[in-house]
Write a protein that binds this DNA or RNA. Structure first.
Length: 505
RNA sequence: GGCCGGUUCGUCUAUCGGCUAGGACAGCCCCCUUUCACGGGGCAAAGACGGGUUCGAUUCCCGUACCGGCUACCA
């Protein structure tokens, strides 16, 4: 890398950040950090009609959760501020006017309504080299007319004047050479009637002004690339243009097409990184974080959707991804999102990470279900014991609550059919034995039960399940003597007695 | 419709002309486990199609098919 890379993620603050967006951030971040470069977040809020309150904060909270902190942004500051395009409005007109002066762009006075009508009337209507000759713009109007229109403050836009029959090409870091014929692309609006730039102008101007060296975005942008290439050529010179990479799309698991928020709702999995509530409608969309995903797993899973290091390794920390990442190994084709695989990554990270790193989040989840933890050491012991059987952080609630609170319902039906007086006597004896035990650990407890069972001519196997039901309430959880050990003598005996009462009723 | 992009097991993918096509998730079976998991072992499962180029094509080229993206004064 000849110079330190500067990459940017340029979201528009219109709602929650979805999978594909986070992955675009990730690949930007990994590439930049791999080469010791900078990661910039620029807010593309040029469409004032789509502005959504809180969306920008949400984006930064999401990046923070993922561990993908920007070096420069409206929130983090930086030498190229402001990083919000709405605050840079004044900058863009100058470039648009320059293009008009050079003959690369023109004023267009057609109203949005007129164009809408045109689209209804003419199938596949495009404002292009052919149709512009019959429309109201500075190419068809007399110079004097244009001047008087402008002087009168008539609403107008500035459109790029696509050249005739020119090959526009560039080298995409992922796809290689991609070329377009300029005849096929329409005269995109560069500056809107409200004076705001469109994405097309803003992205080129700001990438230049912010000295962006590499521009990565989703594949859905490929068709508008020729507009950007031409603008670079006209404004700042192709030799100064960043290198482009158009990332493959993340597809819906069933059927085909881009993964959308709706697919998640329909199929029952999150699409947004974190919970998002639309401030206008109040509609809530759930996120990976709240579904119980660890950021390490979320990032890992996203990285593997379209990239791998060429080995069989699938588990990577952020630091490892930074070290291994290369744009050359990013795929061309889209990847269907597989929620089952996503959960597998999470279970791997739950096992891999020390329980202390997610203890707080589990504490919050337990609190939400009415269990308040006052003994963190006990919590960590419990988490350590049950982590192997948890796929999502939310699984910890069911798997651990009985350690802190006696089960509300006991699955009596699981033991009743084989229950008899002999077993009842056994458990009464077991309580007495437990009361007398010197050391309270799982091995001693197991030995105690086995010896007592032998003395009563009972098979231990017939007694383990009842004991489990008594302590846990159901047929799940880690080894029953480990549970008893953690529960302690008093609580263990109490729960046995409680169930015994239920059984003799 | 037009333009652009893509195409290896159900899914994510390895392979940079030599393949008995490897791994992972999911599925099925077995083992471990006096619960449920974890774990271990195994089974099943793929190069869209047709032409070239080549001693040899999954790999390179062309065509076809299929899938997707875009086609706003949205990003």
């Amino acid at each position: 890398m000849s110079k330190k890379p500067r990459v940017r993620f340029a979201p528009s603050p219109t709602g929650g950040l979805h999978l594909g967006g986070v992955r675009t951030v990730l690949f930007n971040y990994l590439f930049a950090k791999h080469f010791g470069g900078d990661f910039i977040v620029r807010i593309e809020d040029t469409d004032q009609t789509r502005f959504v309150e809180g969306a920008e904060d949400y984006i930064f909270e999401t990046l923070a959760w993922c561990g993908l902190e920007p070096d420069e942004s409206p929130k983090h500051g930086g030498p190229f501020a402001p990083y919000r395009q709405s605050e840079r409005k004044a900058i863009y007109r100058e470039y648009a006017e320059k293009l008009v002066a050079q003959g690369y762009a023109y004023y267009a006075f057609d109203t949005a309504e007129e164009l809408d009508a045109k689209r209804k009337e003419v199938p596949n209507f495009q404002y292009n080299q052919i149709s512009r000759a019959a429309l109201k713009n500075s190419l068809t109007l007399l110079e004097a007319e244009v001047k008087s229109l402008l002087d009168a403050g008539t609403k107008h836009v500035i459109r790029i004047k696509m050249p005739a029959n020119e090959e526009v090409k560039f080298t995409d870091m992922i796809r290689g050479e991609v070329s377009f014929n300029s005849d096929q692309v329409d005269d995109k609006v560069l500056l809107k009637a409200d004076g705001m730039p469109t994405y097309h102008l803003a992205v080129v101007v700001d990438d230049h002004l912010m000295q962006i060296t590499h521009a990565f975005r989703g594949e859905e942008w490929l068709p508008s690339a020729p507009v950007h290439i031409l603008l670079w050529q006209y404004l700042f010179g192709l030799e100064n243009m960043p290198e482009w990479a158009h990332l493959p799309l993340i597809l819906k698991p069933d059927g085909n097409g881009k993964l959308s928020k709706r697919d998640g709702d329909r199929l029952g999995f999150p699409v947004f990184a974190m919970d998002w509530t639309d401030p206008k409608t109040g509609e809530k969309t759930t996120g990976f974080k709240e579904h119980g995903f660890l950021p390490e797993a979320f990032v890992n899973m996203l990285a593997m959707l379209g990239w791998n290091d060429g080995t069989d390794n699938e588990i990577f920390s952020l630091a490892e991804l930074v070290e291994k990442f290369s744009m050359e190994r990013v795929h061309k084709s889209g990847a269907k999102f597989d929620y089952e695989k996503a959960k597998w990554y999470n279970s791997e990270w739950i096992k891999k990470l020390p329980v202390s790193s997610y203890r707080l989040q589990v504490t919050g989840m337990l609190a939400a279900s009415g269990i308040n933890i006052d003994d963190n050491k006990k919590l960590e012991t419990v988490l350590e014991l049950i982590k192997d059987r948890c796929t999502l952080l939310t699984d910890f609630v069911q798997q651990s609550s009985f350690f802190f609170k006696a089960p509300e319902t006991i699955d009596i039906a699981a033991i009743q059919p084989k229950w008899n007086e002999q077993k009842n006597m056994f458990f009464l004896e077991l309580i007495r034995a437990f009361e007398l035990m010197q050391s309270w650990d799982h091995e001693a407890l197991e030995n105690e039960l086995k010896e007592l069972a032998a003395a009563n001519q009972l098979k231990p196997g017939e007694l383990m399940l009842p004991l489990r039901i008594m302590l846990v309430g159901g047929k799940f959880g880690p080894h029953v003597f480990n549970i008893a050990e953690i529960l302690g003598r008093e609580e263990t005996i109490k729960r046995i007695q409680h169930t015994l009462q239920l059984l003799t009723k």
